[in-house]
C-alpha cells in the first residue's frame, strides 16, 4: 500500500469540524490501541468523516467504510489525517 508523504497538513482527527473529511495518515499511541483502531477499518489511506459531536461535546461520531463509530476526542486526537 502506498503511503502519502506526511505533509504539513497532517492534523489530529479531533480538530476536524463536524461534516469535514480527511484521509488517515497514521495512528500514534499505545500499540494495542493502534491495532484495534486499524482492525475497525481505520487503516492509512482510508477516508474518514467527522459526522457530529455528542451534545456535551465529547465523544465524536466518525464515519469510516460506511460504519459509524463513537470515539472519545482524546482517542481521535491520536488519529492523524490529511484534511480534504
Amino acid at each position: 500500500m502506498m503511503h502519502a508523504p506526511r505533509g504539513e497538513r497532517e492534523t489530529p482527527l479531533d480538530r476536524l469540524a463536524p461534516g469535514e473529511q480527511g484521509t488517515i495518515e497514521r495512528i500514534v499511541g499505545d500499540r494495542s490501541m493502534v491495532r484495534r483502531l486499524m482492525e475497525l477499518g481505520l487503516v492509512p489511506g482510508t477516508p474518514v468523516e467527522v459526522v457530529r459531536r455528542a451534545p456535551l461535546g465529547d465523544p465524536v461520531e466518525l464515519r469510516v467504510r460506511q460504519v459509524h463509530l463513537s470515539i472519545r476526542r482524546s482517542e481521535a486526537a491520536q488519529i492523524r489525517v490529511t484534511p480534504r
Binding site: E61, L69, S70, R72, E75
Partner: peptide, 11 residues
C-alpha cells in the same frame, strides 16, 4: 487498568 479504548459502533 490500562487505558481502555472507548470506541463503540453506532449501528
Amino acid at each position: 487498568g490500562g487505558k481502555p479504548l472507548y470506541v463503540m459502533e453506532l449501528p
